[in-house]
Simulated scan of single mutants.
Amino acid sequence: MPFADILGQEKASSYLKKLAGAQKVPGALLFYGPDGVGKARAAVLFAQALNCLDPQARQTGDACGVCASCQAIAKGTHPDVTFVDFTYQARLEVKKDFSSKGYEDELEKEIAKQQHINVDTIRDVTAKSQQKAVGGGWKVLIIDQAQTMQGAAANALLKFIEEPPYKTVWILITNKRATMLKTILSRCQPLAFAPLSQENVTQILKNTGADVPDPDLCARYSGGSVSGALKAAEALELLQNGQFGTPQGPCSVAAGLSRTLVAARQEAQAVLDVLICALHRRWTQTQDPREQRRLQQVLNQFETYKRSIGRNVSPALVLETALMSLDGLNVQIF
């Protein structure tokens, strides 16, 4: 059954199955936890469970995954299930017909610009929430990156999540619950999603056929997140190609960053995250108090480097400086 596909989130899955089986669902749910731990996947599976056409699956609160309703939800074509994310919002912004020449290129550029779920997008989806369900089942409206809703967008959503129509449920997904409006939080039933174990991350990477050379190594630096593991894979490739650990390593790794500033910042942050993880592991392994103090100092420096990358400082310069500060430390990455 589909909920079994969500590794490491047994508590959340069990609660959702219970709700779906009873067909008694809060008007609004808040899925919160780190990125890459299964929140969005769980939201889609919950929508499938609520609308599954298989009576046996519905009795267990799960979805069959193969009926017409489950397949349509998985493909994003079910008329009663709406998944709002930056891609959805970008499609609203691109005025061309999707079959027009150049549509995909324009859409990709628009997606790259997205930073906030805006009020026009919220108005679009709230209008859909008031429409009668086509299939006679549940209307499910999912908003990913809900923490990016600013004042006008959040306020436009308030009255709709407070008293949604019969058999309508809102699911808000966030990795920063604390930054959201209290008025939004007070209207949602919270459901926590925990960081994944290293074993779970490895298994998910293998199950999904992720294009990573060493799932176990990437999982080690994942921070309990599948998306973290994918970022770690790119960082490890940069370190390996740049001959990390050699005298020319700092300059070579920094030179391997992308030429566009946004991409270079993301790559440098990912490399620093991998190095911080390796430094922390070394700190826990050493018994030498002097080395522990030195490692602690370097770890503090690395947090400063991470903040610097988010400012008007060259990511390549910051990364090269950070790598040079490892001189003399026995830090093993691979």
Rank of each mutant, 00 (worst) to 15 (best):
L317Y: 07
F86E: 03
K17E: 15
A154R: 11
A219W: 01
A322S: 09
A268F: 02
R220M: 07
G228S: 07
H280M: 13
Q301F: 14
V253L: 03
A254Q: 00
V84D: 11
D35T: 15
S69H: 11
I333H: 04
V119D: 11
N312K: 09
G249I: 06
K109S: 10
Q301S: 15
G38P: 09
Y15D: 02
N175P: 03
E106C: 04
Q48T: 02
M1E: 05
L141K: 04
I309E: 14
Q243V: 08
G151K: 14
E199L: 02
K139I: 00
A72F: 03
C251V: 13
V262T: 15
A232Y: 01
F193Y: 11
G223W: 12
K95Y: 04
A219G: 03
G102F: 05
L299H: 12
M324E: 08
A28I: 11
V169A: 11
E237W: 02
L172Y: 05
E163T: 08
P315W: 08
K109A: 11
L236D: 12
E320I: 00
E267G: 05
G310D: 15
D216T: 08
P315T: 02
A133Q: 00
A156G: 07
C251F: 12
Q150M: 10
L7I: 13
R41E: 06
V262H: 15
L261A: 12
F46M: 05
L92D: 08
N207L: 15
P165M: 03
D124P: 06
P165T: 01
I276P: 09
Q56S: 13
S227I: 00
S222L: 03
R58M: 05
M180L: 12
I117M: 06
L16H: 09
I276F: 14
N300Y: 14
F83M: 04
S129T: 03
A268C: 08
K306R: 15
A90D: 11
G76D: 04
H78K: 03
K306Y: 09
R311F: 13
Y15F: 15
A72H: 06
T246L: 03
D144F: 01
I143Y: 10
S325K: 08
E93H: 12
P2F: 06
P250F: 03
R187K: 12
N207D: 14
K182W: 09
G61N: 08
